[in-house]
Design a protein around this nucleic acid. Structure first.
Length: 921
RNA sequence: GGGCGGAUAGCUCAGUUGGUUAGAGCGCCUGCCUUACACGCAGGAGGUCGUGGGUUCGAGUCCCUCUUCGCCCACCA
């Protein structure tokens, strides 16, 4: 905004429709562009401050979760930018393997096709096109909420650069022996047709049935009594894949049966009874069916006992077996969905008499985190990352305080997870993602992991084929803090900006993403990727249900922008940002949720409106040139309040980084209290600046003379500083106002203006507190006696020692704010019925109200006040008489209590005298 | 099954190491369009800090019990 509108043209509300143009101007001015040479790590002058944005899914659209996450980051980044750091907020998107593939597959399904109908190459091409069409959406939406990211560095996990980093990372881990191919039971999604990591297979509680099934023991000779072993299972369909029944070796009930066999019903084959300590004798019947191909634990038992591992459920979740195992699945069950088959098998068992009983059973089943399908444990070949060696430095980093996790309680969760970490299945049977850079030789069966595409076997020169699978999408996001800066090359960006500083995200991806970034950061960079992990809460509705599009309880941030503007959205989100606290918003009442933000923006706007119309266009002296003795008590007061507000904001935002790479005890949990920061800035602007200082200044601004200039200077200074304090939260309205302040050059932007520092000068304006007390007391009396607003009262203030002068100087302010005609001095010898108010310092306010005052009412009011005060005083006196308190409480607390007691006593005596004179006994 | 967090005004939440008469926003009541703002101003009502016990001179704050809501983790079929 280079033109300054005539003040009369300023509308009474800020118009958020102008936000987009304003943002475009910021971007044009390059305000958010970080310059690597300025980083002190490469010889520059500035400390770097870097946040890498958690990349949203490339085809995603903005929801409130993004809104919250990115607003938090933007506030931090804007704060540090004003503090003079070379600030980089690095944005980007994630190709989001399964998620994106599922979207495109749904499109295909609408055309009646599957991905197999179109083929791998065409499918990937189509997905690339889809990403090109929709990929920019969410980044544009982030601009709309004001995100001050460095868009020139926008990254994408599937870009050529980052894909090179992914391949490099894979090969290095492979070469270090940390990646291996394993044959084992993994989580399989029969809908997505891919394996999943432990984290991607989420537990969901559900009620089901526990089926008790009798497996008849094979008789040794015809005369033997028929016996059977009863096993319990929640998944009867897997029994077709059973290869044994296991009992505990010490279990007396079955000791004689170990080594014999049972006949598996339906499949009608003989399987052995084995002893294994994995079996818990106290659960159910103490006998356990072993299905190595369809249960991870059974797999281990199977390995120990060298058992066969027949697969009886196909990849798509339908019953079926191949080869020698084919006879296990009866023809009528082949091709049935696993859950249909379950019912059939149960019916069959019942009719055959093998079903002993069915019990209701509550348990947790794993579901695919992308499509919610119940995951099927499945035996297959997958690539794994050996995690133990990687987890050690990641654990040490937190234990040795090179990384802090806020809120602190998540640190224990992080540690607990890393301590029990298991190998990470990184291969996915998908088409959308980074193809695994491994080639198999057709001739010599040599396996090569390669940085470049191979066409010939490096060993024998034979033809090769690349592994069909792609990598877990979280593998590439795990490299994000350095892959986005140019790794594996040693780029200037990497030197200037790695390690980054803070990582801001939701706790739900602590394991998926944060922990892996830390592990991979150490693995490849030898250093932590960031020193602070800030985990914020979740956006929920008023029933505390997580906001989700699919649940229909979401709020579209774009609706909020439209109705109330980006600043209102940001203010609302940040002001409720208690450390780790969830944000509750009402999707059915946007007004209620976002009005506070909008109201605050309007208030700020109108302070500016007043100021610009009243300060005038003449130049304003800078505060430094105003001699201290020209400042009034109100000036000194507001400047002291400003200092306090700055200190409170600084304390709430906290240290930006640890001093020497390690967090001290005191700093570990300090800062990032965004709600406290917001509140400190808000109360200053609204309750101090607007309610008192602006009101006080009105008289001075209307009176020509040297004091008018002082008022103009202090007003402009205080407002300027307040805007700076608020810029990170409400960047649009503060920018609009700040640019219009007198003396501002056209190309100055508050986003890169200096963060305020306290002046710590002057006496703090304590005198003005008495003025405020007098005004408040008079207003209360007006209210108490229902004095008509238009009526000017006569009022007498009897000042405490030495207070007369400052009261006299603020006479017109008091008269205006309280609508009184003021007399300052000793109490008149006599006056008619009057209302009295005794103030804290011993000053007294007397309002004679002939004809209006009700003596009885005033007596009642005074008596009530006296009683209340004396009650408090009694308590206080008792406390001060208590030797235990005197000896054990901190001296400063005792001193404060003593002083308070003195004040209260004086006040109580004065009140008592008033009561006696006005009301008699 | 293990662990963690919340329960404070009608609603949504602050309340740092125990120490003034427990605060804010919204809502509510009364009165005001007082020429920056009715998205506002002034005044006001409203809380036995979930329950029961304990430690302490003193507890919303520390300890234990219970109730309740939520979250994370987990190979008991």
């Amino acid at each position: 905004m280079t033109t300054r509108d005539a003040v009369t043209d300023i509308p009474p509300q800020y118009d958020p429709a102008l936000d987009a143009a304003r943002y475009a101007e910021w971007e044009r001015a390059g305000l958010f562009h970080a310059v690597e040479e300025r980083s002190e790590r490469v010889g520059g002058e500035r400390r770097p401050f870097v946040i890498v944005m958690p990349p949203p899914n490339v085809t995603g659209v903005l929801h409130m979760g993004h809104g919250l996450n990115n607003t938090v980051q933007d506030v931090l980044v804007r704060w540090r930018r004003m503090c003079g750091d070379e600030t980089l907020w690095l944005p980007g998107t994630d190709h989001a393997g399964i998620a994106t593939q599922n979207v495109v597959e749904r499109q295909l399904a609408a055309e009646g096709k599957t991905r197999f109908d179109v083929g791998r190459e065409a499918f990937v091409e189509r997905t690339v096109r889809f990403v090109q069409e929709t990929g920019g959406t969410i980044l544009a939406q982030l601009r709309a909420i004001g995100a001050s990211a460095d868009w020139s560095r926008t990254a994408y996990t599937l870009s050529p650069d980052l894909s090179r980093a992914v391949r490099e990372a894979f090969v290095r881990l492979y070469e270090r022996g940390l990646i291996y191919r394993g044959h084992r039971v993994i989580h399989w999604c029969p809908r997505c047709l891919t394996s999943l990591s432990d984290e991607e297979a989420e537990f969901h509680e559900q009620s089901g049935q526990l089926y008790h099934i009798a497996y008849p023991v094979t008789r040794v000779h015809a005369a033997e009594d028929p016996r059977s072993i009863v096993i319990a299972t929640t998944r009867p369909e897997t029994m077709l894949g059973d290869v044994a029944v296991a009992v505990h070796p010490d279990d007396e009930r079955y000791r004689d049966l170990v080594g014999r066999t049972v006949r598996l019903p339906i499949a009608n084959i003989e399987i052995p009874i084995i002893a294994d300590t994995y079996t818990d004798p106290s659960f159910g019947t103490g006998a356990l069916k072993i299905t190595p191909a369809h249960d991870a634990n059974d797999f281990e038992v199977g390995q120990r006992h060298n058992l066969a591992m027949p697969v009886v459920i196909a990849a798509n979740g339908e019953m079926g077996a191949t080869g020698d195992d084919a006879p296990r699945v009866p023809p009528e069950l082949v091709g049935l969905d696993r859950f249909v088959a379950r019912e059939r098998i149960v019916q069959r068992l019942r009719s055959l008499g093998f079903l002993v009983k069915v019990e209701p059973h509550h348990h947790a089943v794993r579901r695919c985190y992308r499509c919610n399908t119940i995951v099927e444990p499945r035996l297959s070949d997958q690539w794994f990352v050996r995690m133990r060696p990687l987890s050690e430095p990641a654990l040490r980093a937190v234990r040795e305080r090179r990384i802090r996790v806020l809120p602190e309680r998540w640190e224990a969760v992080y540690v607990n997870w890393l301590e029990g970490i298991r190998d990470w299945n990184i291969s996915r049977q998908l088409w959308w993602g980074h193809r695994i850079p491994v080639w198999y030789c057709d001739g010599c069966s040599h396996v090569s992991a390669s940085r470049t595409d191979l066409t010939r076997c490096p060993d024998c020169g034979g033809s090769v084929r690349q592994d069909e699978d792609v990598l877990d999408t979280w593998f590439s996001s795990g490299l994000w803090p350095f892959s986005t800066l140019g790794w594996p090359d040693t780029t200037d960006d990497l030197k200037a900006f790695y390690p980054t500083d803070m990582l801001v995200t939701a706790p739900e991806i602590l394991f998926f993403w944060v922990a892996r970034m830390i592990m991979l950061g150490y693995a490849f960079m030898g250093e932590t990727p960031f020193h602070t992990v800030y985990l914020h809460g979740t956006v929920r509705d008023t029933k505390h249900v997580r906001m989700q599009k699919s649940l229909g309880n979401g709020i579209d941030p774009l609706d909020v922008l439209q109705l109330y503007g980006a600043d209102a959205l940001r203010y609302t989100v940040i002001s409720s940002m208690g450390l780790g606290a969830d944000t509750i918003l009402d999707p059915n009442d946007l007004e209620r949720s976002f009005a506070p933000g909008r109201n605050f923006v309007t208030k700020l706007w109108n302070i500016g409106r007043f100021l610009l119309t009243n300060v005038g266009s003449e130049s304003v002296e800078p505060l430094e040139r105003i001699a201290p003795d020209r400042l009034t008590s109100s000036d000194r007061w507001i400047l002291a309040r400003l200092d306090a507000a700055i200190a409170a904001c600084d304390a709430a935002l906290g240290p930006a980084r640890p001093h020497d790479g390690t967090w001290t005890e005191g700093e570990l949990n300090a800062g990032l209290r965004l709600n406290e920061y917001t509140e400190a800035a808000r109360t200053f602007v609204w309750n101090d600046l607007a309610d008192w200082y602006v009101e006080t200044s009105k008289v001075r601004l209307a009176t020509p003379g040297p004091d008018r200039d002082v008022a103009r200077t202090v007003l402009i200074h205080a407002f300027d500083q307040a805007l700076r304090l608020l810029q990170p939260i409400v960047p649009f309205v503060t920018d609009a106002l700040w640019q219009r302040l007198p003396g501002r050059a056209p190309n100055e932007y508050i986003a890169v203006a200096a963060w305020p520092t306290a002046r710590r000068a002057g006496d703090g304006g304590g005198d003005f507190e008495l003025v405020r007390e007098v005004v408040t007391a008079l207003r209360q009396l007006r209210g108490e006696y229902n004095v008509a607003p238009g009526r000017t009262l006569e009022a007498i203030v009897v000042p405490r020692d030495g207070a007369a002068g400052s009261l006299e100087r603020e006479r017109r302010t008091i008269e205006r704010l309280a609508r009184v005609s003021l007399q300052i001095g000793p109490a008149p010898a006599s006056h008619g019925p009057a209302a009295h108010q005794v103030l804290s310092g011993g000053s007294e306010v007397i309002v004679p109200l002939e004809g209006v005052i009700d003596v009885a009412k005033e007596c009642a009011r005074l008596r009530a006040e006296l009683m209340s005060l004396e009650k408090q005083l009694t308590g206080l006196t008792q406390r001060l008489a208590n030797e235990q308190f005197i000896s054990r409480a901190k001296p400063e607390i005792v001193a404060a209590e003593r002083q308070k007691e003195g004040e209260w006593r004086t006040r109580s005596e004065q009140l008592r005298a008033k009561v006696l004179s006005l009301c008699g006994a």
